[in-house]
Design a protein around this nucleic acid. Structure first.
Lengths: 230, 230
DNA sequence: TTGTCGGCCGATCGCCGACAA
DNA sequence: TTGTCGGCGATCGGCCGACAA
C-alpha cells in the first residue's frame, strides 16, 4: 500500500514514527485499547510491567482492511537496554519536517459525503478545488466537458467514473460509476472520500468511514436522520 | 430444526439411525471423507485403528448450514466393549417402518428448478400436484384465483409468495416474492426446492442444491448451458 | 460554490397469455 | 400438464438543470 495514499486516508492528525526512531511504548494503554477493560491480564503477571518502555522502531507496515478499506499500521518495536537510553530530538528523523508532507497536502483532497452524494439516486458533487488540482485536466472546449476518470483504491483495484462539468451554474460531478462505488464500498452520508494524485500522476481513491452509532438495531450516523426542530 | 423438514430436504435416500440403535463406525472412511486424501494422519498413529467399530448412537442432531441452508446431522457415537456385542435387527428400532415416513411422502414435494423458474424474469411454475396437496386450499371461485402463501424455511424465517392460478391452459404459479427468494438463497437452475406441509398444517420450504461443477472460473451446472446440437 | 430537489427518460423487473413439447 | 417465449406495463436508477443556501 502506497504510504502517501495511506496517510491521505488516515488524515493529517496521524503521524507515524520513522524506522530507527525511538518511541515510548505504554503497555497498559496498549492493553486497554486492544481489548477494552481486559487489562487485568497484564496486571496479573508475576513481574509487574513498567508503565513505559523506551523502544526502537525497527519496522512500519502500512496496511488496509480488505473488507472496509480502513487503514492501519503494524509497527515493530524492540525495547532498548537502560544503557542505550539517550535523548534525541524526533525532528532529527524528519518527523515534523517531512518534505512529503507538504507535497501530500497539495495533491490530496478529502470530502465528507453529503446525503445527495450517498443517495443512490445520483452522483457525486466534486468540489471545484478537487477537480482542478487532483483530477486529470478537463478539456473545457467540449460542451459539456466530459472525461473518464480512473482511480485506484487501497487494494490496487481500479474504479471508473464519468466526470462531467455541467449545470447552471456549472459544477463538477461524478455520475456513471459513482453509485457502483458507493454500493460496493457501502458508503453512507458522513463517510469521507479521499482523492490523491501521486507523484507519478496516478489518481488514487481512499475512504474514511465515520464513527457509527447504533440506533436500536439500525446503523446510522449521529446527527443525521434527526429532524431539526425550530 | 423440524426433523420432517430436515428429511424432506435431505431426500428419500437419506436414512438416519435412531437413538440407542447400534451402527458400525468406519474410521478410515470418515477420515477420507472429512479431508479428502488426508487419511495418513490416522494411519501414522502408534496403535492402528480397527477397520470398523461397533457403536451405540447416543444422540442425533438435525442441523442446517446458516449460509446455504444445506442440511446435515451431528451423530454422537459411543463405542461398545466387545462383550456388549449382540446382533439386533435395525427394524426393531423402526428404521424401515417409520410411520412418519409414509406421512412425509404424502405431504412433501420437491421440484428441480427449470431455467424459467430460476430466471429473474419471472415466477415459479408450481406442479399441480404440489399446489393441490401441499399448498393451502385455493378459492377457485375468484377470477383469477389468488392467495398469499407463507412458508417457513429451515431457520424459521417466513417467506411470502403470491400464489395465482391463471393462464390458458390454467396453471399454478408463484409470482411476487419468488424472485426475492431466489436471489436471497442464490438458487440457480438445477437446484431443487422442497415444499412440506407439517402435521400442524404449517407450510415449510427447503432447498437442495445441485452439485456445482466449475467451468473455467464460472460456476455452472453440468448439462445446463450446453447448446443441443441436432 | 455546491447541496437538494423535481422532472424525465431509459433500463430493468416482473406479470401476463400464447404456444408447443 | 408445464417449460419457454415475447409483449408490455410498472417501477426504479440515474442524469439533468433549477434554485437557494
Amino acid at each position: 500500500l502506497d504510504p502517501q495514499l495511506w496517510h491521505a486516508c488516515a488524515g493529517g492528525m496521524v503521524q507515524m514514527p520513522p524506522v530507527r526512531s525511538r518511541v515510548y511504548y505504554f503497555p497498559q494503554g496498549h492493553a486497554e485499547h486492544a481489548h477494552a477493560g481486559g487489562a487485568a491480564d497484564l496486571a496479573a503477571g508475576a513481574r509487574p510491567l513498567p508503565p513505559l518502555v523506551l523502544c526502537s522502531v525497527t519496522g512500519v507496515r502500512f496496511l488496509a482492511d480488505p473488507e472496509t478499506d480502513e487503514v492501519f499500521a503494524k509497527i515493530r518495536l524492540v525495547p532498548l537496554a537502560p544503557g542505550e537510553v539517550e535523548f534525541r530530538e524526533p525532528d532529527e528523523f524528519g518527523l515534523g519536517g517531512d518534505p512529503a508532507d507538504a507535497r501530500e497536502k497539495l495533491s490530496s483532497f478529502a470530502k465528507t459525503l453529503t446525503q445527495s452524494d450517498a443517495n443512490n439516486g445520483g452522483g457525486f458533487s466534486v468540489p471545484r478545488y478537487c477537480a482542478e488540482t487532483i483530477f486529470p485536466k478537463l478539456d473545457y472546449r467540449a460542451d459539456p466537458p466530459v472525461q473518464t476518470v480512473l482511480a485506484k483504491d487501497v487494494h490496487g483495484e481500479v474504479w471508473k467514473f464519468r466526470h462531467i462539468y455541467r449545470g447552471t451554474p456549472r459544477r463538477h460531478l461524478l455520475t456513471t460509476g459513482w453509485s457502483t462505488f458507493v454500493n460496493q464500498k457501502k458508503l453512507i452520508a458522513g463517510d469521507s472520500i479521499v482523492f490523491l494524485r501521486t507523484e507519478h500522476g496516478e489518481l488514487c481513491v481512499g475512504i474514511r468511514r465515520a464513527k457509527r452509532v447504533s440506533c436500536g438495531g439500525m446503523e446510522c450516523m449521529s446527527g443525521w436522520n434527526a429532524p431539526g426542530y425550530g
